[in-house]
Amino acid sequence: MTTLFGFPTQALFGQLLLGLINGSFYALLSLGLAIIFGLLNIINFAHGALYMAGAFVAWILLNHLGLGYWWSLLLAPVAVALFGVLIERTLLSRLYKLDHLYGLLLTFGLALIIQGMFRLQFGVSGLPYAVPAELAGGTRLPFMYLPTYRGWVVVASLAVCLTTWLLIEKTKLGAYLRAATENPALVQTFGVNVPLLLTVTYAFGVGLAALAGVLAAPIYTVSPMMGADIIIVVFAVVVIGGMGSIMGSIVTGFGLGLVEGLTKVFYPQGSTTVIFVIMAIVLLTKPAGLFGRSS
């Protein structure tokens, strides 16, 4: 068996791949959180619950309507985004003039409601979701075995993240979003429908979370609590990266996933806490975050 630094390369690269996959979800989730926070000034605590909802929509589509993975990849984010429209229009829009912390409390309540509903309906034990046939199997690389689906998750997330980045940095709609993030009242005096922009942004952000949920469904079991723990890690990711930069969120998300994977190889006991430790170190050395602008 080949080894690297005294560890079998198979295990090393396997964990790195797993880390990269976790990183994909961190990136997709923290990206959505950052976009929403930038424009709405709300930290969306329901983000994890909506990620979970995305995975469940995929499971329901498959098991009740017979619609497979590829349909889910399209429909689940749309369904969750529509739910996001409802949330933003009926609840969040009432909070914009209040302290930001109310947004956190309200979305925390939403997260409890959504998680409770799914628990009531589906119980706490996870439900399996099969890898789609087109992405089953794997490839034997010289240093490791690469399951096709896992490779696909990394590539797909990366593509979605970069597309989002391009959308925000290079399009007219993105320019509206960036401008409204800086000064919504002024953008409104130009005749731009800022309230609509807020709704669309929230829907897009939670749509990204749902997409991450669908991607995650075949890797983890689909369970009502799958979003609760990941959202706390994503909060730490967001603190580490700072929410000022879109590219920063993406890089931090993937990077921390890798670090977590490496920790699993070299110090398994620390793998659940390593991101929190990094957060503490970043707070001590660069409180505004790696890519943050201090305000």
Partner: peptide, 11 residues
């Protein structure tokens, strides 16, 4: 304000 702007008023 967005509707006012749409009527042809620039600020």
């Amino acid at each position: 304000s967005r509707k006012i702007a749409r009527r042809g008023l620039g600020y």
